Every structure is written in structure tokens, then in C-alpha cells.
Lab assay of single mutants.
Amino acid sequence: GIPATNLSRVAGLEKQLAIELKVKQGAENMIQTYSNGSTKDRKLLLTAQQMLQDSKTKIDIIRMQLRRALQ
């Protein structure tokens, strides 16, 4: 079985993952909103794209940590 310490770690990672998935969803929504907007929305679009990139990276890292914890 999986050690108890790993189980609480997994629960924490799953919570983090859920949050990051919401951030990713929000960033994707912002990108959709701003991509057909005016030029003043360009900065917001770039910010949203950066957020999305960061979020995807975090999600990958969390998933990797989850896999390790579940081994």
C-alpha cells in the first residue's frame, strides 16, 4: 500500500491541482475575451497568455509529484 504520509501529500497535491486547473480555465477564458478586443486589450491578452503558460507548467509539475507520491 501507500504510506499515510504520502496519502496526505496526495490530498494536498490534488487540492493544488484543482486550483491550478481553475486558474488555467480562467486564463483561457481571458484569452478568448481579449483576443478579439482592441489594442488596449493587448497587454491583458499577453498577461493572460503568460498566466496560462505558468499554469500549464505548474499542472505538469503537480502531476509529476502526484505520480511519484503514488508509486
Rank of each mutant, 00 (worst) to 15 (best):
G1L: 10
I2V: 11
I2P: 09
I2K: 12
A4Q: 14
A4T: 12
T5S: 07
T5L: 11
T5F: 10
T5N: 12
N6D: 15
N6M: 12
N6I: 15
N6A: 09
N6R: 05
L7A: 15
S8N: 13
S8F: 07
S8K: 12
S8P: 07
R9I: 15
V10L: 05
V10Q: 02
V10D: 01
V10S: 02
V10W: 02
L13A: 00
E14T: 13
E14G: 04
E14P: 01
K15P: 01
K15W: 06
Q16W: 07
Q16G: 01
L17T: 00
L17K: 00
A18E: 06
A18G: 03
I19S: 08
I19R: 15
E20C: 14
E20K: 01
E20P: 00
E20W: 15
L21A: 02
L21T: 03
L21D: 01
K22G: 06
K22N: 07
K22C: 13
K22Q: 08
K22R: 10
V23G: 02
K24D: 01
K24H: 05
Q25R: 09
Q25C: 12
Q25S: 06
G26H: 15
G26P: 00
G26K: 15
A27K: 01
A27C: 11
E28G: 01
E28W: 07
N29H: 12
N29S: 07
N29D: 13
M30P: 00
M30T: 03
I31K: 01
I31Y: 02
I31E: 01
I31W: 02
Q32C: 12
Q32Y: 06
Q32D: 08
Q32W: 06
T33W: 08
T33S: 12
T33K: 12
Y34M: 04
Y34S: 02
Y34K: 01
S35P: 03
S35D: 04
N36M: 06
N36V: 06
G37A: 07
G37T: 07
S38W: 04
S38V: 08
S38L: 12
T39F: 09
T39Q: 12
T39I: 10
K40G: 11
D41T: 04
D41I: 02
D41C: 07
D41L: 04
R42G: 11
R42W: 14
R42H: 15
K43R: 08
L44E: 05
L44K: 11
L44C: 12
L44W: 04
L45H: 02
L46W: 07
L46C: 12
T47L: 11
T47F: 07
T47S: 13
T47H: 12
A48Q: 01
A48R: 01
A48V: 03
A48C: 04
A48W: 09
A48G: 02
Q50P: 00
Q50C: 11
Q50A: 07
M51N: 04
M51L: 10
M51R: 06
M51E: 06
L52V: 03
L52M: 04
L52R: 02
Q53N: 04
Q53H: 12
Q53G: 03
Q53I: 07
Q53A: 11
S55M: 02
S55Q: 04
S55L: 03
S55F: 01
K56Q: 10
K56Y: 04
K56G: 02
K56C: 13
T57E: 09
T57Q: 12
T57K: 10
K58H: 02
I59H: 01
I59R: 00
I59C: 03
I59T: 01
D60V: 12
D60E: 14
D60I: 15
I61M: 14
I61V: 08
I62K: 00
I62E: 00
I62G: 00
R63V: 10
R63E: 09
M64G: 08
Q65N: 04
Q65F: 04
Q65P: 00
Q65R: 06
L66G: 00
L66N: 00
L66F: 01
R67P: 01
R67M: 08
R67G: 03
R67L: 11
R67I: 10
R68N: 10
R68C: 15
R68I: 15
A69Y: 11
A69P: 02
A69V: 10
A69L: 15
A69M: 08
L70D: 04
L70Q: 12
L70A: 06
L70M: 07
L70K: 07
Q71P: 03
Q71F: 06
Q71C: 13
